[in-house]
Design a protein around this nucleic acid. Structure first.
Lengths: 275, 275
DNA sequence: GTTCGGCAACGAACATCGTTCTAACATAGA
DNA sequence: TCTATGTTAGAACGATGTTCGTTGCCGAAC
């Protein structure tokens, strides 16, 4: 009170008497955990996972990096919150026993859609056991669908786990290649190429921003391989140009859900037989 | 000159003439790209991915970090080489047309085994298109098995892709949880728990070094959930205690390979019908 | 009305990281 | 012996996650 400190705004503080510069930076709009999570997600969507830093988030909020730590504990804790919040975007319908197969496919499609909308999601999920409130809701509803479909508990639990990891595996290489800011080739090829099997690039080829251009590059590269060493690869190189991710994903969930249904049926048959 | 610098080993250099201290550090054993890659793999196996740094590798080789860059270009380039070298550990058998289903399962098992032996492998593979010499050999042999099994090219290519990503997805959460150096809980729980669905932990629970202890923790936690909100999860909590990864993996590849075989058969049927 | 204590914010600093710069060295050929 | 070239390596740069110590705010107690 008494407007104690910075009362006379015109007179600058003597520079040797170093006082905190509270000119900018209003104490209004106190930062909250939700605001931090939201800006983190906004930055992640806009600029990708690699460029996300505590300081970047703090800048966006008009504060310093240290201020974030009171609310989120650590960057990893923040990513925990981001992860669960994004899982909350998933809406899983209530179980309809006769339609459990289609429902399960819809769940898979929804999960892939979220992972494509936030291409960093799968990478964030690594090493994080999904046990936040939204993740629990998600597991509950998926399990409910499988239980309503008549799967025995063991198979239902295993199936829900496998569904998640299978979709994650698929979207991982769908989203893993091109993140953001296109890097140049870098081609670290020096000498010492003594044991190379082929005359292709030295170790691994990075193809950025996939889509059609990258697919054609891969196809051309494969087609140019020495046929005696890679006969099948050369013969099938053409298939790599029109690789439709949607079609492949549908094939995957078809295989998975059909297979799961078949195990469920055979399990039911076994149970009936041993009755 | 005349054997200018460190010739007479007994006499120390005058300290004001600051020359690089080449007292230790023999010029023998010049570092090579292979030696760098091998040391990196050894460190990765022993200490995990998080603690790997260029300086750590250089220390192990008795040199400085800058010296590595002449050979590998960048850390990412080094990981390219590590990745392809580890893929080289896989040995895929030649195709036996009548046994392609078992062979494909064996491929999956082998891939999982490598990913468990080097738990950082899957994480390294993210964003890396597998086109090194060993990766190409791998793709060639898998495709050869599928082609010998009679799959049409389109299905063979898609199947080989899906096999890799499916196994990766499975091993990702098998190896993703506990890396190395056990961290303490950290529990960043402050106030503002206003919208929590449950009275459980705040956001996400990290269970380290999985196995039985972690499984029991998960089971107990799920069993203690409010049953009206999570009826299915609570009812099936017991299943989470005896979750056998091997059994689940076998279920996965059973489903996958059987499903692929079924598509192959129906594709063959279609081809014959439209003939 | 004044004092006090805890919640919240913040600047500065620390350790570490990947990477670059540049000088020094080693060795082979002239 | 001199030079050219390939190779090593110390120092430094910028950026990162995180911690420390301090400061301010605001309601409760006196």
């Amino acid at each position: 009170m008494h407007e104690s400190s910075g009362q006379f705004e015109g007179i600058p503080q003597p520079p040797w008497q170093r006082l905190p510069d509270r000119s900018a930076r209003r104490r209004r709009d106190p930062i909250s955990r939700e605001a931090i999570v939201d800006t983190a997600i906004r930055l992640l969507d806009a600029e990708g996972l690699d460029t996300l830093s505590m300081r970047r988030i703090a800048d966006e909020l008009g504060t310093g990096a240290a201020s974030l730590y009171w609310h989120v504990g650590s960057k990893d804790g923040l990513l925990d919150l981001v992860f669960d919040k994004l899982i909350g975007e998933l809406t899983i319908p209530g179980p309809q026993p006769g339609r459990w197969r289609e429902q399960l496919k819809d769940v898979a499609r929804a999960q892939r859609a979220v992972s494509l909308r936030h291409p960093y999601l799968v990478r964030i999920s690594i090493g994080r056991i999904p046990m936040g409130p939204n993740a629990l809701r998600y597991s509950e509803r998926v399990l409910a669908i499988l239980a309503a479909g008549g799967l025995p508990p063991r198979l239902a639990v295993q199936g829900s786990h496998l569904l998640i990891s299978t979709v994650n595996g698929f979207t991982l290489d769908e989203t893993g290649v091109g993140d953001d800011a296109a890097e140049d080739a870098s081609a670290h090829g020096a000498a010492t190429g003594h044991d190379a099997t082929t005359h292709g690039p030295d170790a691994t080829v990075h193809t950025h921003r996939g889509s059609q251009q990258g697919a054609n590059m891969v196809r051309d590269y494969l087609a140019a391989l020495p046929p005696q060493a890679f006969p099948t690869l050369v013969a099938m190189a053409g298939e790599y140009s029109h690789a439709d991710p949607d079609e492949r994903f549908e094939l995957l969930i078809d295989i998975f859900v059909d297979g799961l249904a078949r195990r469920a049926a055979s399990a039911a048959g076994d149970a009936k037989a041993s009755q």
